[in-house]
Design a protein around this nucleic acid. Structure first.
Lengths: 123, 123
DNA sequence: CTTTCACATTCCATTATATGCATATGTTAA
DNA sequence: TTAACATATGCATATAATGGAATGTGAAAG
C-alpha cells in the first residue's frame, strides 16, 4: 500500500507526472528536463530527488551531465504509466512535452554543453 | 489533464483510494463505508463530496440511506482502477477492506437500520 | 589548484490539505 | 409536528505540500 500510495501521490502533481512521462520515454538530464518542461532547475532537481527517494529512477553520469531514467520495478506502476502513455495524445500538456522532447535540440539553450547536440558527451 | 490530475490526486490519499476500490465493487451507503473502513462518518461524507465534485459517483436514495456507486466516464480512469483491482490481493489494506465488505452484515452496528440486513429498504 | 558548470539542497513564505468536533440539513416515520 | 436518524457541512487547527531565491556540492576541464 505504501508503495502504491507513494507512487500515486508522486504523479498526482502535474509537473511530477510530466517528468514521469518523459523519463518513461528516454533518459534525460536535469537541464534537458528544465528546458523541455520550462520549469526552474531547482524544481526539477527536487522532483527527481523524490523519484530517487522512492527508488523509481536510475541516474548515470555521463561527463558533466547526470542522466535519469525511469526504473519501475512494480508491475502495477508500470501498468499505470503505460495506460497513461496510451492516452497521451488526448492529454494536451503531455503531448506538448513529448513533442518538445523529440525536438529538444532546438530548445537546449539551458545547458551550455548542449549534451544532445554533441556527438556524445565525454564519458 | 485537469481530469486526470484531479483523479490521481483523489486516489493519492489512502482512505480515498480505499473508498474508490469499494465503490467500484458495489453501491454502498455512508454508514456502510463508515463501518467497513472504520473511519468517522464526517470523513466519509467529505470524501464522497470530493467524488461528487469530480462527477465520479452517482448517488441514489433508498429509504433512509443514500447509496453511492462509482461512475467513471473516462476510460483512463477505468483502466487505472481496473489495474489496481487486479493487484488487490497483493495490497493488504485493500484485501482487508474487500473481505470486510463481503461480510458487512456482521459489522454493521453503525447504521441502525442495518440496510443490508433487511430484505430491501423502503424505497 | 582554480574556475566553471550541472545539479542538489536549504531556507522561507505561502498555500493547501487533513481531520476532529460540533452542528446543520433533510428525510423518514410516528 | 415532532423525534430519530443518515448524511452534510462549518469551523478550528494541525500538518504538510509548494515553489521561489539563494546557496552549497562536487565533478570536469583548463
Amino acid at each position: 500500500m505504501k508503495s502504491l500510495q507513494g507512487f500515486l501521490k508522486l504523479i498526482s502533481e502535474e509537473t511530477r507526472l510530466r517528468v514521469m512521462m518523459l523519463l518513461n520515454e528516454e533518459a534525460l538530464c536535469v537541464c534537458e528536463l528544465e528546458a523541455i518542461l520550462d520549469v526552474p532547475q531547482p524544481r526539477v532537481s527536487k522532483i527527481l530527488s523524490k523519484y530517487r527517494d522512492l527508488g523509481l529512477v536510475i541516474d548515470e553520469r555521463k561527463g558533466k551531465f547526470i542522466y535519469y531514467k525511469l526504473d519501475l520495478k512494480d508491475p502495477l506502476h508500470q501498468t499505470i504509466v503505460s495506460s497513461i502513455k496510451e492516452k497521451r495524445d488526448t492529454i494536451e500538456q503531455l503531448s506538448i512535452d513529448y513533442q518538445r522532447m523529440l525536438k529538444k535540440e532546438e530548445i537546449l539553450n539551458a545547458c551550455q554543453g548542449s549534451p544532445t547536440n554533441v556527438d556524445g558527451p565525454s564519458d
